[in-house]
């Protein structure tokens, strides 16, 4: 069941055997909009940043990421696996479904990164998003925009302190049209009502893994898998997925 396509995701990225600077979705990509690009992040020697007016300046993703057997290892800054343009088909599909699941398998580099550091994000900048699954220190955070929330998808839905550990973890966020849940390693970590609908989503936003679209909310660690489903997976399905990964 570690098969990324076992439960019919609408987008799925297996980083375990990656190479090069693009990652294609394993699920049918209806309009070729879901291939992720890494820019110049891979296998380049990290250059020390120069000092700019407001802080260090280094070009996007210069160094700081490498491929390994367990996935994409991100240790630097300004690294993102990002669609070239808007992930419009993905957004429209989720809006039509009115429900979703976001799966992320990876190992956080530490339990201090924050912002929240973006793991999976359908967003355009720090203030405008459809959804984000991220890490805030030792908690996982879901921001899910509905017609009842602000454009940033807040208030946050947060797992309890200590749920993030610097080891391989399976994280799944689900939304069934009324209730949002975040599971960690197959266990339900938080569950909250989220009213409204997804009709306020913006189809112009890209899909970004491991960062915000402006590259200012870096997530560090190892990404093994990211997948998005157009339905809320059941408790049993989530548990099955986690067991397959963590066994």
């Amino acid at each position: 069941m570690q098969d990324p396509l076992a439960l019919d995701p609408i987008a799925a990225y297996d980083f375990r055997e990656g190479q090069g600077d693009t990652i294609a979705s394993l699920a049918p990509d209806e309009d070729d909009s879901l291939t992720l690009t890494l820019g110049d992040a891979i296998d380049r020697e990290a250059q020390p940043p120069r000092q700019g007016i407001l802080g260090p300046v280094s070009p996007p993703g210069q160094g700081g990421a490498r491929w390994a057997e367990e996935g994409l290892v991100i240790e630097g800054a300004r690294v993102a696996a990002k669609t070239y343009g808007p992930a419009a088909w993905l957004t429209d599909t989720l809006v039509d479904a009115g429900a979703l699941s976001v799966e992320f398998v990876g190992g956080p580099g530490d339990t201090e990164q924050n912002g929240p550091a973006r793991m999976v994000s359908l967003s355009v900048d720090p203030y405008h998003r459809n959804l984000t699954l991220g890490q805030e220190a030792d908690r996982y955070v879901l921001r899910l925009r509905t017609t009842d929330t602000d454009a940033n998808g807040t208030p946050n839905i947060e797992t309890p302190p200590g749920t993030v550990r610097p080891e391989l973890q399976h994280v799944m966020a689900t939304y069934d049209g009324g209730v949002a849940r975040v599971y960690v390693d197959g266990e339900l970590a938080v569950e909250e009502d989220r009213g409204g609908s997804l009709e306020s989503w913006d189809a112009d936003y890209p899909l970004v893994i491991a960062n915000e679209a402006d590259l200012e909310r870096q997530w560090r660690g190892t990404v093994a898998l990211a997948a998005i489903y157009d339905r809320a997976l059941t408790n049993d399905e989530v548990t099955g997925r986690a067991d397959a990964w963590l066994a």
Partner: peptide
């Protein structure tokens, strides 16, 4: 001059 460099810095950050 300072404002110009702030914009240039961010352009460089974004490639």
């Amino acid at each position: 001059t300072v404002g110009y460099h702030i914009i240039e810095d961010e352009r460089e950050r974004r490639g």
